[in-house]
């Protein structure tokens, strides 16, 4: 992790379809970061609602990531598209209260790669 990120709190919502073994894979990183990082595995990113994202910020996250499967690859057809739209809506809302849009970030994975949650998280946190 970059020095500048030290002490920041992260909430990571991710579609569990991207890493079938997420439960095990995320452990090493949780061990390393402790309460600094919280994972919210969801059955489909389409389940994300603006309220979830707001509550994550409210409970202290400095940065919220929503990781979705590649567009077109959603098991439920358009879950990831929904996630994107809802994230956008929430970005507008937090901007109105003077927060950076960037606090909420959508990570849409590229098709054809095998991702594991731990590697992905390391990439995100630099």
């Amino acid at each position: 992790m970059k020095k500048t990120n030290a002490g920041k709190k992260y909430a990571i919502f991710f579609c569990q379809q991207i890493d079938k073994n997420q439960d095990v894979n995320r452990r090493s990183i949780e061990k390393e970061f402790g309460p600094q990082i919280r994972f919210f595995p969801i059955p489909c990113s389409g389940r994300i609602e603006p309220l979830h994202l707001m509550r994550a910020i409210e409970s202290g996250a400095d940065k919220v990531y929503v990781v979705t499967c590649p567009e077109g690859a959603c098991r439920y057809r358009e879950g990831n598209i929904r996630a994107r739209k809802r994230l956008l809506y929430t970005q507008n809302l937090i901007e109105e209260i003077g927060l950076e849009r960037g606090m909420l970030e959508l990570i849409r994975l590229k098709a054809g790669n095998n991702y594991t949650v731990d590697k992905l998280t390391r990439e995100l946190l630099g």
Partner: peptide, 8 residues
């Protein structure tokens, strides 16, 4: 949503 936003 509004409550959350106002609290933050």
């Amino acid at each position: 949503l509004l409550a959350s936003a106002l609290r933050i």
